[in-house]
Design a protein around this nucleic acid. Structure first.
Lengths: 215, 215
DNA sequence: TAGATTGTTAATCGATTAACAATC
DNA sequence: TAGATTGTTAATCGATTAACAATC
């Protein structure tokens, strides 16, 4: 995809929401939806939804709308959910364990092969069937198993060290839960989950306004 | 704050990042910073930073820049971090426990008074000094303790029920980790942490491009 | 066919960047 | 004072909304 044809990040961040609602519709046995109905569900305008989707192709049909299953499949492909990913978790504390226990990720194709920690009390334990290993083994494990995605759930003090190991062992994507902005090669994709920032945004709106119109 | 003077959500979401970096500078003993230096740290442009801050007042000084401590305090006030909040957690599984164990929230003034679950095996346990109580007691507990913020870390099936209890017992803000869009009164503030959406965004960029310029 | 709804262009709105006078 | 950097206005850029012809 060249620079000219790039779809903006704001569009991309709406796609998972479409994908989620289409999944729910499918479960309910609904197989057809218009941009207007999708607008009611998601809160985005119908016009915006049509614009968003047409960045990737004309998935609809005039006079009919969109086929739920087909649109969901298309969005799945666009989002890269038509394959599986090998992942590991660095940091086997509560947050790491919470991620490891969350079945939704595995269902979506993100397979967790191992967890790593430096705490001897944790090493050797299993979360579901996922073993917690010594962080010293991490680099080799990543290389030998061709890990795609590394998940960082360590304290912020260790986050950059972990990211460095990830980088040199060839990981392509990092899902970072530590409250730090990691420095990595351009080629590595980082997605941050900054819980502090989310909580502080909530407290801003609590303080300032209750009927603020938001995203 | 009336409609005319509202600061846009995109600005608000940048404030916690300024706040975090200012805290780090303060720890290092740096007491002065220019918009240009702050730009290098945060990745936002200097112009944007000055625009953002001037939504709330002129905190800087020509020829000098900003006083780190003062600016941090001002941002703290703006974000509502100059007080404490009483919170509870609904859902005492791994994610709830991870949130309960995260010291950073308490340091920022968010005090967790109790956790609630319906699983008898969990009821009575303590995470740090926080007791897990029966969810049947939740409504009363909220009323009696004037809880400000409710945190939802239940499975998505229970999330709306929890939100309903929160609403009728007078909670003002909800921090929602369940992958669902909750329906609540206009007056209740919701902040979502949609981990699925974050992960899918990562997988989009993994699939489509490695040197994409992002937020 | 008539009605419905898309795909797409044009208009509007809002956010970011650039520029510079004000001023410490 | 001279240099530096803000606060703020103007210009640009991008995203959202509106409108409607195309078409199923």
């Amino acid at each position: 995809m060249d620079r000219e044809n790039r779809v903006s990040i704001t569009v991309i961040r709406r796609l998972p929401k479409y994908y989620r609602y289409l999944g729910e519709l499918l479960k309910k046995g609904i197989n057809r939806i218009s941009s207007q109905e999708l607008s009611k569900l998601t809160g985005f305008t119908a016009s915006q939804i049509r614009q968003d989707l047409n960045n990737f192709g004309g998935f609809g049909q005039q006079g009919y709308g969109y086929n739920v299953e087909e649109l969901r499949n298309q969005l799945g492909k666009i989002l890269g959910l038509d394959r599986t990913y090998k992942t590991i978790i660095a940091g086997a504390g509560n947050l790491g364990q919470a991620v490891a226990n969350y079945r939704g990720f595995e269902e979506a194709g993100f397979k967790i092969l191992a967890m790593f920690d430096k705490n001897p009390k944790l090493i050797g334990l299993k979360i579901r069937d996922i073993e917690i290993k010594d962080v010293d083994e991490m680099e080799n494990f990543i290389r030998e198993n061709n890990i795609d995605i590394g998940i960082i759930t360590t304290p912020k003090e260790s986050a950059q060290d972990v990211a460095d190991i990830f980088m040199r062992s060839g990981i392509r994507g990092i899902w970072n839960f530590a409250p730090a902005d990691l420095k990595v090669d351009d080629k590595v994709i980082i997605e941050n989950v900054h819980l502090n920032e989310s909580l502080f945004t909530l407290s801003y709106f609590l303080k300032n306004e209750s009927d603020y119109v938001r995203d």
